[in-house]
Simulated assay, not measured.
Amino acid sequence: MYWCKKALIVTLGLLCIYGCKPDVKEFKGQYKYFDLKGFMRTDSARLVASNPLVDKSVSHNGAVETRQLKIANWGNELSMFTNSDINRPAWRNSYQTKTLGDSTIYLSNEPDLKTKRLIIVKHGDKVASIHIVNHTENLLFEANEDLTYVPDSLYIISKKQQVLILGSNNYLVKGRIIK
């Protein structure tokens, strides 16, 4: 009898916790901003299929290593771009949009958002380049990221970190796609 009461209490507790969980609905409407995540997924799949040779250099605090290689997982290679997507339901009014010629610029209205600026340059309907500026800061850590992607040409990832106890680190990744 004791175990039945205990099992009933645990089950009711779990049901209460589950019942109090807020509804999280997918954002199913049109994207308010450029669909960066969708674009990067599609372009990553295209790059996997074409399997180009890449002249890649990686620098950490000035020490540089350069190699020519084929990237097996483009989704992982370009994940910093994908993770900078600004299309979240909670952020629907968090960015102001400006259009200058063939460029669309999204600027953060809120200081707490990681992605501060997203610039999409198009030639006609085709994306010519993407430029992203990210900034993250808390009591122990500060990071600045500058990301540039030019389809079928190159990608550049520049990251500067300042960690309270460990000091600063500078990373630079340049990948030039060889046709």
Rank of each mutant, 00 (worst) to 15 (best):
V24Y: 14
V133I: 10
S84N: 03
T99E: 12
L8E: 11
S103K: 13
T66A: 14
N83V: 07
G13M: 10
K5L: 13
F27W: 15
L139V: 10
V54W: 03
R46L: 09
H135S: 12
Y95H: 02
Q96N: 10
W3N: 04
K98C: 00
A45I: 01
I177S: 02
K28W: 00
W3Q: 06
P89H: 13
Y149K: 03
Q161H: 09
E65Q: 13
M80D: 08
E110C: 03
K159A: 14
D43I: 00
K160V: 10
G62C: 08
A90H: 00
T82M: 12
G62Q: 04
Y106K: 04
V54Q: 05
L100H: 06
I178W: 11
N170I: 09
P89M: 12
F27Y: 12
K21E: 11
V24C: 03
Q68S: 08
C20K: 07
Y95W: 01
D112M: 09
E137R: 08
T11M: 13
A7G: 09
M80L: 05
I9T: 11
I177Q: 08
T104R: 08
V150N: 06
G62N: 10
K116T: 04
M40K: 03
T66G: 05
K159D: 07
L154K: 11
G175A: 14
L78K: 02
M80Y: 03
A63G: 03
L147V: 03
I156V: 15
V64S: 13
L8I: 11
S153W: 00
I132L: 06
I71G: 01
I86T: 08
Q162M: 12
N144L: 12
H123I: 07
Y149T: 10
K174V: 14
L166N: 04
T66V: 05
N51A: 15
K6P: 01
L154Y: 03
L69K: 02
C16K: 06
S153D: 12
L113T: 02
N169K: 15
L118C: 08
L100D: 10
E145F: 02
Y33P: 00
D35M: 04
K5N: 05
L47M: 15
E110Q: 14
S153C: 05
K32S: 10
Q68T: 15
A49W: 04
L36C: 09
V10Y: 09
I119Y: 00
G124R: 08
V48P: 00
S44E: 01
A49K: 10
A45W: 02
V24D: 10
K70L: 01
R67S: 12
Q161C: 02
W91S: 00
D43N: 11
T148I: 07
L15C: 11
G38K: 14
T42F: 09
L14S: 13
V127E: 02
A72W: 04
V121N: 13
P111Q: 14
Q162P: 01
F81Q: 00
M1L: 09
I132G: 07
I132Q: 01
V48F: 02
V48Q: 07
L139A: 15
K174T: 05
G38I: 14
V150K: 09
Y2W: 06
E26T: 04
L172S: 13
K122E: 09
E110I: 14
W91N: 06
S50R: 06
P89N: 15
D43P: 00
P151R: 06
T42Y: 07
V10S: 13
T136Q: 09
L172A: 04
I105N: 06
L107A: 06
N169G: 01
V121Q: 07
